[in-house]
Measured scan of single mutants.
Amino acid sequence: TEEFVRLWREAVRHNQTLHWNGTDFIPGDEWAEEFARREEEKL
Rank of each mutant, 00 (worst) to 15 (best):
D24A: 09
N15I: 04
V12Q: 10
V12Y: 03
H19R: 11
E30L: 13
A32H: 02
H14A: 14
D29K: 03
H19A: 05
H19Y: 07
F4N: 00
D29I: 06
H19E: 06
T1F: 11
P27D: 01
T23W: 13
D29T: 11
R38P: 05
L43D: 04
A11D: 00
V5Y: 04
T23C: 15
E33R: 04
E34A: 13
T23I: 15
F35L: 05
A36E: 02
R38W: 08
E30Q: 13
N15K: 12
Q16H: 09
L18K: 00
E33D: 09
T1A: 14
R13L: 15
T23L: 15
E41D: 10
L7R: 14
F25Q: 00
G28N: 05
E40H: 09
R37S: 09
R6C: 15
E2D: 11
W8M: 05
N15L: 08
D29M: 08
T1I: 14
E34T: 06
E3S: 09
L43Q: 06
F25V: 01
F25T: 01
N21W: 11
L43T: 06
P27T: 01
W31Y: 08
W31R: 07
G28M: 03
V12K: 14
H14S: 15
N21S: 08
D29C: 12
T23M: 15
F35K: 04
F25W: 04
L7D: 07
D24L: 14
R37E: 07
A36I: 07
A32S: 15
A36T: 03
N21Q: 14
E3L: 09
D24N: 09
I26T: 15
H14F: 13
E40P: 04
T1D: 12
V5I: 15
H14D: 12
R13E: 13
F4S: 00
E39Y: 14
R9N: 11
E41V: 10
W20K: 01
R6S: 07
E40F: 13
R13A: 15
D29Y: 04
G28W: 02
E3Q: 09
E40N: 07
W8E: 07
R37F: 06
L7E: 07
D24I: 12
K42L: 08
Q16F: 11
T17R: 08
A11N: 00
A11L: 03
N21Y: 12
E34F: 04
W31Q: 08
G28C: 10
W8T: 03
W8R: 01
L7F: 04
E33L: 05
A11H: 04
T23R: 15
E30I: 12
E10R: 03
R6H: 13
G28P: 03
Q16C: 15
F35V: 09
L7Y: 04
E33H: 08
A36H: 02
F4R: 00
K42N: 07
G28A: 02
V12D: 01
E39F: 14
D24M: 10
R38A: 13
F4V: 00
N21I: 05
E3N: 11
E34W: 08
